[in-house]
Design a protein around this nucleic acid. Sequence first.
DNA 1: ACAATGACGCAACATTGTTGCATTTGTATC
DNA 2: GATACAAATGCAACAATGTTGCGTCATTGT
Lengths: 129, 129
Amino acid sequence: MILHHSGRATAGRIGILATLLAEQKAITHREIEQRLPQSLQLDRVTLYRTLEWLVENGLIHKITSDDRVWRYHANHESHSHQHAHFKCTGCAQVICLDSLPTEQSWPLPTGYRFQEIELTVKGLCANCC
Amino acid sequence: MILHHSGRATAGRIGILATLLAEQKAITHREIEQRLPQSLQLDRVTLYRTLEWLVENGLIHKITSDDRVWRYHANHESHSHQHAHFKCTGCAQVICLDSLPTEQSWPLPTGYRFQEIELTVKGLCANCC
DNA sequence: ACAATGACGCAACATTGTTGCATTTGTATC
DNA sequence: GATACAAATGCAACAATGTTGCGTCATTGT
Ligand SMILES: [Mn+2]
Ligand SMILES: [Mn+2]
Ligand SMILES: [Zn+2]
Ligand SMILES: [Zn+2]
């Protein structure tokens, strides 16, 4: 748990990051709240702001989804900065796929500039199959 | 404007579909509301339900985004059922890319079943460059 | 110990979309 | 064309997720 970043290493930040590190999949604000220990009951807003801070400092990343809910996941070294995700259409679980969708230049209209790619594979997880 | 589908060909449905057909890019519920003619002032809920109906009947498709807003676009024959999208990080505009992201089997964990792919390229449009 | 700055908690708000239900409208049948 | 039925609409209330403002508390550097 290295927090050599702009800002303070508070109990909340450490606990939230630990929670995310302990999780294989990407989880929602709600799920994080539920997993936090009794000793770490913090306000929803603080949780939102802490997650934002962890994202800005490159310790976690967040994933958009079609259910309008952000999911958060720790930045393990195993997967690169940019990677694809899988979302189960049965249980809504989201996992990170380590394979990059290749930055093969996408044929954009002329004058358009490429920045990044966002790729989600949908299907059924092993449990929901 | 062929509406040989389950349900009625009401003024609202025809007007909304016409609005979407007249648009190059995918637009939001808000934007559709603004573009509707004076003679077609319908309730927000009706608009939501009509859009849902148009999606179910395969006349339009909707696109998820990181701003938690659905964008809708008519199903022109030019782009296939499955296609990628581009979102401008400057003006939030979304267009459909006609090139398919290839259904090359993504390496999912064992036991997982592939259903579909959702791909958004982000960058700057010609105006925002 | 003190002051400055950052983090936190609480309340209120914003946005987007959904649900229930009564009323209206379109369509098939007569 | 009138009638009956089902579908579509309008309105109000609700739900879920996330944001903003601001006063208070805690951490850190001096
Ligand atoms: Mn990920
Ligand atoms: Mn499209
Ligand atoms: Zn599942
Ligand atoms: Zn743009």
